[in-house]
Computed example of a mutant assay.
Amino acid sequence: MARAITNIVIHTTATAQSAKVESIQSYWRNSLGWKSPGYHKLIEANGNVVTLAPDESITNGVAGYNSNSLHVSYIGGIDSKGGAIDNRTEAQKKAMAAVVAAWKVKYPNAMVLGHRDFPNVRKACPCFDAKPWWKEVEQAIKK
């Protein structure tokens, strides 16, 4: 039976934009002890989208909300001092819009949210306000 997807969640890795997919996955496995990835899709600085898990899989994006959520993250989200910053490249913005738009076709009733939009989340992730971002993207798609 297919999962009922009610949330499409936007994340940042809170790493340097140069972080490698393999090092992020290694951190999840070896430091956090996760058997599943944190996200379904990860977007590199050049806009390349790496699929880490199929839509049918449950990942570790937002504690308590993963069974009904899909997760996409861009690599980056911190400045040189480790502070939260929206430093998505234009390629990442385009790729993220394409990923979310494709998911919205498959799951039209799903809400697009940032990680920080969930109850009791005390982080800046994804370092921008996902809801108005998605509204802008939707309007651009309709034109």
Rank of each mutant, 00 (worst) to 15 (best):
57 S>L: 10
27 Y>A: 08
45 A>G: 00
17 Q>P: 07
78 I>C: 00
65 Y>R: 07
142 K>A: 11
21 V>E: 00
86 D>T: 07
54 P>I: 00
74 Y>R: 11
7 N>W: 11
6 T>D: 12
16 A>P: 03
103 W>Q: 02
79 D>V: 05
24 I>L: 14
130 A>N: 08
125 C>V: 13
76 G>R: 07
89 T>I: 01
18 S>N: 02
37 P>V: 01
112 V>M: 03
30 N>R: 08
55 D>N: 08
6 T>Y: 12
104 K>V: 09
60 N>W: 08
140 A>C: 04
19 A>C: 00
104 K>D: 06
46 N>E: 04
62 V>T: 12
91 A>T: 09
65 Y>Q: 05
117 D>V: 04
92 Q>D: 11
16 A>L: 12
42 L>D: 14
110 A>D: 07
34 W>P: 09
126 P>T: 14
56 E>Q: 14
123 K>D: 11
126 P>Q: 13
55 D>F: 00
53 A>M: 00
119 P>S: 11
1 M>D: 02
106 K>N: 12
41 K>M: 11
27 Y>M: 09
69 S>P: 03
75 I>F: 09
18 S>M: 00
94 K>S: 11
105 V>R: 15
119 P>T: 07
80 S>Q: 14
120 N>Q: 10
129 D>P: 05
60 N>L: 05
66 N>R: 10
89 T>F: 04
17 Q>A: 12
20 K>I: 03
66 N>L: 10
14 A>S: 13
73 S>F: 09
35 K>L: 08
6 T>N: 14
106 K>L: 12
75 I>W: 09
28 W>N: 12
94 K>Y: 00
62 V>K: 06
112 V>R: 00
39 Y>D: 03
25 Q>I: 13
131 K>P: 02
131 K>E: 12
91 A>W: 02
29 R>I: 09
50 V>G: 04
98 A>F: 01
113 L>H: 06
141 I>W: 03
129 D>Y: 10
9 V>D: 13
114 G>F: 03
104 K>C: 10
12 T>A: 14
119 P>H: 13
44 E>T: 04
65 Y>T: 01
134 W>K: 12
55 D>G: 01
137 V>K: 05
119 P>K: 05
15 T>E: 07
116 R>K: 14
80 S>C: 05
109 N>H: 15
42 L>M: 14
140 A>T: 14
87 N>G: 03
105 V>C: 05
121 V>F: 10
72 V>T: 15
54 P>S: 03
105 V>H: 09
142 K>N: 14
55 D>P: 00
10 I>Y: 12
17 Q>G: 15
116 R>V: 05
57 S>F: 10
97 A>F: 05
67 S>T: 13
55 D>E: 02
81 K>S: 13
58 I>Q: 14
